[in-house]
Amino acid sequence: MAALDPKAMGKLIATGATTRVDAPATKPKFKIGDRVAARNLSPVTHTRLPRYVRGKRGRVERVHGVFALPDTHAIGAGRSPQWVYAVTFDAAELWGPQGRGAGRLTIDLWDDYLDPA
C-alpha cells in the first residue's frame, strides 16, 4: 500500500467513509412503532450492544438504513450488513424505580441485536 499524499488524504477526510449500504437487498424486519426487545447477548469479542439495554423492551423510533455489523467487522469476519434502528426505551425500563424522571433513551441497534416483543 502506498502512503496517501496530502491531497488524497484531504479528499478522503472530506468525503468520509461509511459502511452504509445505499441500495439494500433486504427489507427491514421492523418498522417505526414496532415493539422490540434487545437480545441478551454476551459475546467475548466486540459488540455495540451495551449491557444496560440487554433484555430490555423498547420501541422502534427511526429506521436508519443498512450498515456493517460491528460484531463481525471488528474480527475480520466480514461486514454482515443489516438494518439499524433507533430504538427508544423508557428510563424506568432500563433502570427500574431509580430511572424515574430520566425520560427516555434512544440507542441505535442492528437486526441481530433485536427480537420482536
Binding site: H64, P70, L94, R104, L105, I107, D108
Partner: peptide, 30 residues
C-alpha cells in the same frame, strides 16, 4: 444515560419538571 438531569445540573442546566429529557447514545454509525 442513568441520571441525565443530574448530569445537566453539573453543567449548570436546570430542566423544569415538565420538560421531557431524551438521551441519545450514539453507539452506531449515526
Amino acid at each position: 444515560v442513568r441520571d441525565p438531569r443530574g448530569t445537566l445540573r453539573e453543567f449548570g442546566v436546570e430542566l423544569p419538571e415538565g420538560v421531557e429529557i431524551r438521551v441519545w447514545d450514539s453507539n452506531a454509525e449515526i
